[in-house]
Write a protein that binds this DNA or RNA. Structure first.
Lengths: 388, 388
DNA sequence: TCCTTTATGAAGGTCTCCATAGATAGTCAC
DNA sequence: GTGACTATCTATGGAGACCTTCATAAAGGA
């Protein structure tokens, strides 16, 4: 919608961007004729633009496709290896760093195990170990990163500060941006982990292309994230999807009750839920009742969000989503009395990498935002630097 | 974000649009030098663009401002009288048609009284009477309208059909688009009335410029509308903000209890609420208790939306908002136990024209969307025609 | 080998924007 | 009233980017 305009060089810039975008979205090499059709430019102009972009290093020529009639056409591809972004999942039990290229393909990753008793300082050191491992595996340096997004539990406010954390006592207030900024000069974003998982599902997972969705993190600490109009939604202060804070939903206690009820048979907390879901799957009536009770509470908060937002899809993620075969039908039944139209509900398809992947997606989004709203001229590919 | 590019004529088009936008947003005449600064174009190019736009009728020259040094500069203004849009409030008790120019200034309006017993056919005829009155008052014809948006109670789905109406038994399924299309050739949109009221408040009222807000329609039929990222939010099927459908909120009965409780002293339903609020204002303890009970129920549904969306602002509209001095503090108190951060709450400032005004705003948005994403060339101002 | 098909490369023309310089029409000071 | 000052207006020339056209090149198939 933003009308820009400008002089001839600006026009050339727009046409270059439009060519780069066409090549990138095609995901396979394009001939000059195809590119001309997609950009709406004349063939001669496309030749000019492409020559320029190839010299600068944004695109590369690939061998012509054999077996066609007529003179073989030159083909070009977007050089998605021109830059890379980093997504980091700073979790309770692990730190996972994922490096992707500009096309979002995973190039390398690094993983370090931690636990809920790991102190802030050690956890932050684990971040560097995971990042370094990923950099080594990718054969890249810190200065090759074009953008970084780290996911953390807790509410992340507008300034990137972490507040309201349940699991880790010394985590609130941690300055992740400052920490990452010690060795990374590129733009850095911090984001809530559920939000990143939601974004990953919407880009690469079960919700690919869905515009409006509610992501339910079902696990020992339930949570929710929203994608609205295809974009991650932050609200005014970052505390969105927090409907579980209403006592009436019972979200703060429902997981504990599931794990400590008679159907859990006294298993350790980490295992109890899985055991209850397993028993319910096997036909244990007591376990089924416990799952139903859990689903009814989950449905209260979910219905509040669904009725508010009328999403197309609800994605079930988090630890309990591994038992979606049991939990999902129970949730659907529990939602029906509340909703006019129960939306589609699907279990997440991405595994435990989803938060780090979502981080990479968001970092890529920010790279795109800067690139496609560029004011200056198109130079060679290079890592953007933080303003501060 | 949409990269367009194209040939020289497209560049000229972009620069023309950018000039038109600058002139329109300035809301006062601009000299060529000022326009050159705002668009980033050279003076000479601005002369070209402006000459062309003036010939086509998009802008007009105004007398130079006196009293300045140097040769007096020519000044130009956007011709907001080049086109008009129509906003219609098809309400239970009235039909109100408002005509605004392209700057959103009200040019004329027409109003016809109806009531809850008016049949669909008569209500639709009342729509034409109100529209004709507005057209006559504006000195315009139906073909001068560039866009129409009508607001109706009930859920309005993607196709513009009205479903789920409480107040009017024969209203569901009414084909307002078809009805208006009989005499209006321009694009027609149907929208839920609360959504339009919310939009009006966000554009012209108490929520001017707020990006994320929840609009609460408090009245005998409570409802809600959402504005997210500065845009009206529809969700997947149009049924957003319907938390009141959850039994647990008590939204379906809370107004009735307020009106039929002892504090109402047996007044007629239409008057009872006003009486209760008045008594509460005067210090009547029983009435205050009734208002508090109402606010607690209202807060349940409101908290669900606020916790979900974390809006900057909640706007209180609808009939009961005339008693905001009593209701608003009670609502704020009732929200506090539920919310981490109680958002700002303000009563609506627009009067009973808000729905029709919101309709005009939305129609203008659609005109803008078409205009600024134009693929062809810029011709003279003319009413767009429906595709069908 | 020739023909068809498709892509390439160069030339000429058009459009838009920019920079520069001189002309113009006001205000301000005397 | 006259002259200085100032900001704008008008006209001209030049540069950049795009388009169209046409001759040329390279492959497969008859």
């Amino acid at each position: 919608m933003q009308v820009s305009g400008g002089d001839l060089q600006r026009l050339r810039q727009l046409n270059s961007l439009s060519s780069i975008r066409a090549l990138r979205e095609a995901r396979e090499p394009l001939t000059l004729t195809e590119l001309s059709a997609r950009t709406g430019l004349s063939r001669a102009s496309v030749v000019d633009v492409v020559t320029d972009l190839e010299q600068r290093g944004w695109i590369a020529e690939v061998p012509p496709a054999p077996g066609a009639m007529g003179r073989p056409a030159k083909r070009y591809r977007f050089r998605s290896d021109a830059g890379h972004v980093l997504g980091i999942d700073v979790g309770v039990h692990k730190v996972l760093a994922v490096i992707t290229d500009l096309a979002g393909r995973i190039v390398a990753s690094g993983r370090v195990a931690v636990d809920r008793h790991t102190a802030q300082r050690e956890r932050l050191e684990a971040v560097w170990r995971a990042v370094d491992a990923a950099l080594v595996a990718a054969g890249l340096g810190a200065s090759d990163m074009w953008g970084v997004t780290a996911g953390s539990t807790g509410v992340v406010n507008r300034e990137g500060l972490v507040t309201m954390v349940n699991d880790l006592p010394d985590w609130p207030g941690v300055d992740l941006v400052g920490h990452l900024g010690q060795r990374l000069a590129c733009p850095i974003t911090i984001e809530n982990d559920s939000k990143l998982a939601a974004l990953a599902e919407q880009r690469l997972g079960v919700a690919a292309g869905v515009q409006h969705l509610v992501y339910l993190h079902v696990g020992r600490r339930p949570g929710a994230a929203l994608i609205i109009d295809g974009r991650l939604y932050h609200g005014f202060s970052g505390a969105t999807g927090e409907v579980g804070l209403m006592e009436i939903t019972g979200w703060s206690t429902m997981a504990g009750r599931l794990e400590s009820g008679p159907a859990a048979k006294g298993a350790a907390p980490e295992e109890a839920a899985r055991q209850v879901f397993g028993a319910a799957r096997a036909g244990d009536l007591e376990a089924q009742a416990a799952v139903d009770a859990y689903a009814r509470h989950l449905a209260l908060g979910t219905a509040a969000m669904v009725l508010t937002l009328d999403p197309e899809l609800v994605v079930l993620g988090g630890g309990f989503s591994r038992s979606a075969d049991v939990l999902l039908p129970a949730l659907r039944r529990a939602l029906e009395p509340h909703c006019v139209r129960v939306p589609d509900i699907r279990p997440s398809t991405l595994g435990e990498e989803c938060v780090a992947l979502g981080g990479a997606c968001l970092a890529l989004d920010h790279v795109d935002d800067r690139f496609f709203s560029l004011e200056g001229s198109i130079s060679s590919p290079a890592a953007p630097q933080r303003a501060s």
